[in-house]
Design a protein around this nucleic acid. Structure first.
Lengths: 140, 140
DNA sequence: ATAAATGTAATGTTTAGAATTACATTTACC
DNA sequence: GGTAAATGTAATTCTAAACATTACATTTAT
């Protein structure tokens, strides 16, 4: 799956650990080892869906604007990666019975599969991510 | 998801429509609009798992070597695309609590998610693909 | 023998992902 | 009000992965 997803989960987890102050794109970028501009792009999608608030100018940055236990991995998937389960099909030969219909048949099945995936991912919230990340670090 | 998957499903569906003679990589390639060498590569994976038999030399080609209703979309996924649900993570900063553990936490969740996907895809066989492709073509 | 096929490695081409640069805009603070 | 620190976003460059293409060894029917 595309890496915007893990970057979004990563960022939201960090933000939920620092709920009381703004984090800059540079700080988030350093933790994820990516370019700050990319953080701004991905978090801009999250902002459009109300998951974070942003503030420009000195002292600005990003801050979580939802309850960590209300933001699920499914919601993040929908924002950053919806449709990515769909197997890519090169444009097949429409003269052929299979070529003409395979894409539609597969697409129907995988749309269904993605909604099953949704039910599964809905079980996990950003709050769970924080817990699990902390548990793992304790067991080191 | 990667396109080897849809190419494999496409090819197996075609082969199961022509169960009594060998199909050449050129013929399969024409239906899927890809290069014959790519067909040979993908079907070579399927051969290693016993789904098709191949024969070199004049009159050779590919033929299904399993019952269409016994070959599931899950088995094909495992052969061509296992792990592709896993969200890509760039190597994060290990100094950071989140950076150090996020990959493992996500990977655990998505390994589980992939096995749920498996249960879903196991419902569909190549025989179902043939049926659905044919039904769609009748409704045109 | 020859022609038709797969097997596979090597190479080139295209495309998508990501970084980088550039710059406009916003905002805090002196 | 001026400056520095931040986001927003478009344009560009760089890189890696996907895919096609070429090349050639091998197999096999006729």
């Amino acid at each position: 799956m595309n890496s915007d997803y893990s970057l979004a989960v990563h960022s939201l987890t960090l933000l939920s650990i620092m709920p009381d102050r703004m984090s800059s794109s540079s700080a988030l970028a350093e933790s994820a080892s990516v370019h700050p501009v990319r953080i701004r792009k991905v978090l801009s999608m999250l902002r459009q869906h109300g998951l974070v608030e942003t503030k420009e100018g000195t002292g600005g940055g990003f801050i979580l604007s939802a309850e960590p236990d209300q933001v699920t991995l499914w919601e993040i998937y929908q924002i950053t990666s919806e449709g990515s389960l769909q197997p890519k099909c090169s444009e097949a030969n429409k003269q052929c019975l299979v070529g003409a219909n395979m894409e539609l048949v597969l697409s129907t099945i995988f749309t269904d599969a993605e909604s099953h995936l949704g039910a599964f991912l809905q079980q996990y919230s950003i709050a769970d991510m924080v817990n699990q990340v902390q548990q793992h670090s304790h067991s080191l």
